[in-house]
Nucleic acid binder design. Structure first.
Lengths: 146, 146
DNA sequence: TGGAATGGGTATTTACAATACCTATTAGCA
DNA sequence: TGCTAATAGGTATTGTAAATACCCATTCCA
């Protein structure tokens, strides 16, 4: 049982944006922040933008920003979106007609139910619950820039 | 969100064995039945045998057979076993120490909870519930062997 | 109008699931 | 009690798709 790194990275990006929802993040900044390639991140941003979860602006001072309040975005919704087209088992896919036991298979129902339970559990939380607060300097310790 | 075909095939094999629990299935028979390569299936059989879910015998007339009643084997247990070493996200793996937000990450808890919900839902059913009855000839129709 | 940012297509790499091959082991039988 | 047939089980190879890199068009701001 595995989520793609596409989803993994997408979630971390959103967590970061949710931690500072009033400003736009450039893909370069997010990439540096998370230690990932800008190009790869850009793909994820596009996907999220197309789905209306974030807004993006080109040009100088552009970037990406949550389109809605983080408290209104449920985690299940995010995962559903990022894992789009990733069937739990092959026969759940668009061309999964190769199963020899199709008609007699009582497994599919159980798997769908379990998948739903997974997402329902995630839907109990919102993006606001996992927002990543801006890096905090440890209190009481003076940080001396070198 | 995806299960490996290793798991997929393993489940179908077990469904088949549960449908006729009193006899041993050779890997060749199961492979032919499910339309898969014998070698691949053998790997799965080995894994299940090592975990004590099935018993195997070598030599002429050998094969594999459920070690316990199908009603005692919960689906979650099977999936946990077959998906062993397949972390939901990279940082759940054995060497997932590369995450830059480790300490501040509030996502992990939610994912673990959702994963548990997934398995718990499956645990509501047993292998007996999805046993694959031996291929049934349509009633009233005489099947003439060629 | 130039620079900075995203959009989005294409090409490449790489990891690992899936498969094939080969050897060791076992049980039945002559 | 050796011989044969069948399976278990290990190792090597292949294939596929995710992950990554690269490039250029487009857009907006200063």
């Amino acid at each position: 049982m595995r989520l793609t790194s596409f989803t993994d990275f997408g979630l971390r990006m959103l967590m970061r944006m949710a931690g500072d929802p009033s400003r736009a993040f450039s893909s370069a900044e997010l990439a540096a922040d998370l230690g990932l390639s800008r190009n790869h991140l850009a793909k994820i941003i596009q996907h999220l933008a197309r789905a209306g979860l974030i807004d993006t602006w080109r040009g100088g001072g552009g970037g990406a920003m949550l389109a809605r309040s983080a408290a209104e975005i449920r985690l299940g919704q995010i995962i559903r979106l990022l894992e789009e087209g990733q069937p739990l088992v092959e026969c759940f896919g668009t061309e999964g007609g190769t199963c020899s036991i199709e008609a007699r298979c009582r497994l599919k129902t159980r798997l769908r139910s379990a998948e739903a339970a997974f997402l329902a559990d995630l839907d109990r939380s919102t993006l606001a619950d996992i927002a990543l607060a801006p890096q905090e300097k440890s209190a009481g310790t003076l940080v001396v820039p070198q």
